[in-house]
Design a protein around this nucleic acid. Structure first.
Lengths: 207, 207
DNA sequence: GTCTATACTCTGATAGAC
DNA sequence: GTCTATCAGAGTATAGAC
């Protein structure tokens, strides 16, 4: 019995296992301070075996980020798909993004903070993939704007940049079982957006 | 003629020169990928001379961050000092913070994105110093809240964390001579805060 | 205080047996 | 596909002359 395909379901699970281990280490220590030996150990392998899968350490980071962006895109997509109410769509997208930042999978975190370790072509590729993810948000905001839900005096690109920035930074201070739950954070962001960005909200002030 | 003091004005200028060169390199390449040799070269020195000033590479980063936080604190302080109107105070503080993120001095940037390179005691010290800077903002927000300028349903700490996060992330995408000027960014943030955070603003909606 | 030269350590990558 | 062993290079830190 010979193997006919390289990308069997088993190989996929294997890939995810290796990348998850690497992601955890990269998140904890940073890319540069993590050695291939450590990654191999975390996978119960020896450096040689890891080298069989990824020729260079950088290749591992690139593949990790690729997977991370796939996960992020599908997480946000599936959070908003089938939701017809545009405002509710935005709310769910925000929560999905926040959820990823603190989820068990550290890939999105690594994606946000370790892309500077890449050089040349590898970096270009990641920027392209990241932009594709951002386009998801751009499309969502554009659709909201066309429905007249967003204040007309706000630049949509700036809104996306500042908004995602506010969310992304949460990853730097948020702790599970910390002072704030993720729901509280999402709620807070939502209230701010609701009063500052959305057109036609109820004025919060009573007197 | 003997030297009586270590910390002459000249030594201070010298320190700033070395740290500024290091900050630029750390910002461009990251702390780990920057060698002490490169830093020395950028200061027109040899590694040995640099070693005379800082025993270890990490000491240099710590001192750099210390200076960066001093600069940040004094920049924000002097931006708001003497401004009696609390809302205007906030606006100026935001602009000062933004200005630092993109200023020639890369120290604040390094401070935000390279503190993860520190371990143990050094990291603890930086967290303490960073918290002191954040307390500047906490005090400003508290004072605004006491004057009834801030919506009462917003948690002040979350407001600080999310707000500074939105600002800090600007450093990751902002480019001089890019699509947006720093003024536009500051303006945008200010409009959002104005409608979402401040009490009793004019409703932006006309019809 | 600054320089040259070097010791020591660690890492990423490789070669080749199994 | 996984292992052992090792190479070649880089980088920090140090020693000691000047």
């Amino acid at each position: 019995m010979r193997k006919k395909r390289q990308s069997t379901p088993v190989a996929q699970a294997d890939r995810q296992f290796v990348l998850a281990a690497a992601a955890r280490l990269f998140r904890e220590q940073g890319y540069d301070r993590t050695t291939v030996k450590e990654i191999a150990e975390a996978c119960d392998m020896l450096p040689g075996s890891l080298h069989y899968r990824y020729q260079a350490k950088e290749d591992l980071l690139v593949d990790l980020m690729r997977l991370g962006l796939e996960q992020a895109s599908s997480a946000v997509s599936s959070a908003v798909v089938g939701v017809s109410e545009p405002v509710e769509q935005l709310r769910r997208g925000i929560n999905a993004h926040l959820q990823m930042l603190v989820s068990d999978s550290d890939m999105v975190y690594v994606l946000l903070f370790e892309w500077r370790s890449l050089r040349g072509e590898a970096r270009e590729e990641m920027i392209k993939l990241r932009d594709r993810y951002e386009m998801l948000w751009a499309a969502m905001l554009k659709s909201l704007a066309e429905k007249g839900v967003i204040r007309k005096d706000l630049d949509l690109d700036l809104l996306r940049l500042i908004g995602l920035g506010a969310l992304n930074w949460v990853a730097t201070w948020f702790r599970d079982n910390g002072r704030y739950s993720l729901e509280e954070v999402g709620d807070f962001v939502w209230r701010v957006i609701h009063s500052a960005v959305l057109e036609g909200h109820e004025q919060h002030r009573s007197g």
